[in-house]
Design a protein around this nucleic acid. Structure first.
Length: 473
DNA sequence: CTATGGCACGGATT
DNA sequence: AATCCGTGCCATAG
């Protein structure tokens, strides 16, 4: 190798070069833009394109035999992917919560990481039961999904394209829809919801008003017209609201995203739209008991490196270009270094966070243990603002498929709110705020009466009085 | 008279 | 420095 041109700071451009280039605060979508811009202008930077196996849809970095369908893949035959893919490092947290190991062989090398964008994530699940000849169909569907995990094209089109019967496409689609995230591959939010209900009704009783609400009252549902919805279903507005709440908290019309904006007062259609998650937390091999796997998503297909060719040519650079080229080279190496840094920090942070919030991740809101960014920063030995940057704006996908903002891990009131929900759910007679506060106190949560009221409002729970008077209907 | 929601203050967090 | 959050006080609706 050459005496690599270390980061001799050049006076002009030092502005963004000198510091470790603050990539940490970026979400993967922003990162994508940044890198793409860099790629376009900097010849020293090279992206090893990943390709998708045409047979099984799996993401490939190079032309290696595909581990899934174990055929050698012809890079010529495979098409470049559409969906933002993720190539990422991974590490695990153990079930006991005592220790977590970062697999040692994983660190600087980045060719062996599991490819988990949505398509391959789904494909991996259905691969065992997927007939060989149906793979192209599955691949077709999966690669066509839009950002929400819905299928924007008609299944009929697909069946025509592959010269197969619509039923067969439908069969494949049904398999996909029942994989995590449940409902993915549906043609409409409505269809997605129905699938989710169907799956849910396996484990628990499902009043058929809910199904009807989705099937017939979808329109009213999304507009929060509870009175009309109630009339349609033959239940009270309160119950209608109850149904709506159930749907919005337990189901998601956009399988690849989170559920639609929480039931706020007023009618903001969708307060924030969540994009793709930046982090993925799932069970190893999808086994419920398995250790958790965390993947920091990298927004580009393939992997990034300094173009070796560029290095070579750099040797004989014409005088007038030498300065520019050197600059490019430095920029490229720095970007890569910072990228690695970012990923590293995120790993450490999430490792700790996941360990701390394991119960929350697995068992839901009630088990969230409050933690502050500051305290985490202290344990991690980094500045508070580092943690802040790493957390802000990012979202993560939990094993249950829900996409939540990372900041939720730090919400102080979340667990109490969940308990309140539970208390109210179980209550026989409508409990007043003071009574709720008392019960909470007995359970070890010390909160003021006024605060209970606030939480109640946040959860969209009506006041005791209204609950009482509505109950009879 | 009681339960709630509004406003605003102060301390913690970012 | 800016923002968020829990809480107390007070007006008001029931």
């Amino acid at each position: 190798m050459y005496p690599t041109h270390r980061l001799e700071t050049r006076p002009q451009t030092t502005a963004h070069l000198a510091q470790t280039m603050t990539l940490l605060g970026m979400t993967s979508a922003e990162l994508k833009q940044k890198i793409e811009a860099e790629l376009a202008t900097n010849p020293a930077l090279e992206l090893l394109e990943a390709r998708r196996c045409r047979t099984c849809g799996r993401l490939l970095i190079e032309s290696i035999p595909c581990p899934l369908c174990s055929r050698p893949h012809d890079p010529e035959a495979s098409e470049p992917i559409v969906f933002t893919s993720s190539r990422s490092e991974y590490f695990q947290t153990q079930s006991s919560g005592t220790s977590h190991n970062i697999s040692p062989e994983e660190l600087p090398d980045d060719n062996m990481a599991p490819a988990v964008d949505l398509p391959s994530f789904v494909l991996r699940q259905i691969a065992p039961e997927l007939a060989e000849e149906d793979r192209p169909i599955a691949a077709h569907i999966l690669t066509s999904l839009d950002e929400d995990g819905l299928l924007p094209i008609s299944p009929l089109e697909i069946s025509r394209y592959h010269h197969v019967s619509p039923e067969r496409v439908q069969k494949v689609r049904a398999m996909i829809q029942h994989a995590e995230p449940i409902g993915v591959g549906s043609c409409s939010p409505q269809e997605a919801l129905l699938i989710q209900i169907e799956v849910l009704s396996d484990s628990q009783e499902m009043p058929d008003q809910i199904v009807r609400a989705i099937r017939e009252g979808m329109d009213l549902l999304s507009r929060h017209h509870y009175t009309k919805l109630g009339k349609l279903l033959g239940v009270s507005p309160l119950e209608a609201e109850e149904i709506s709440r159930f749907i919005s908290t337990n189901l998601t019309p956009y399988p690849a995203r989170t559920h639609w904006g929480s039931i706020r007062q007023g009618n903001e259609p969708s307060p924030q739209r969540y994009h793709h998650p930046d982090i993925l937390i799932s069970h190893l091999n999808g086994k419920m008991s398995g250790p958790l796997v965390i993947e920091i998503l990298f927004p580009l297909k393939g992997s990034l490196r300094v173009n070796p060719l560029f290095r070579q040519v750099f040797e004989d650079a014409p005088v007038e270009k030498i300065e520019k080229w050197q600059q490019d080279l430095e920029k490229a190496t720095l970007l890569i270094k910072c990228l690695r840094q970012r990923s590293n920090t995120m790993q450490q942070l999430l490792s700790l966070l996941t360990k701390h919030q394991r119960e929350f991740i697995l068992q839901g809101d009630k088990h969230l243990k409050p933690i502050t960014r500051a305290s985490l920063a202290q344990v991690l030995g980094v500045h508070e603002s580092t943690v802040s940057r790493a957390v802000s704006g990012k979202t993560t996908c939990l094993p249950n498929g829900r996409i939540i903002p990372l900041s939720k891990f730090f919400e102080r009131s979340l667990s109490i709110r969940a308990v309140i929900r539970e208390i109210v759910g179980k209550e026989k007679e409508a409990l007043t705020d003071t009574e709720i506060a008392e019960r909470l106190g007995e359970m070890g949560y010390d909160v003021a009466r006024r605060t209970v009221a606030k939480y109640r409002a946040m959860e969209g729970i009506l006041s005791a009085r209204t609950r009482q008077s509505m109950a009879g209907i």
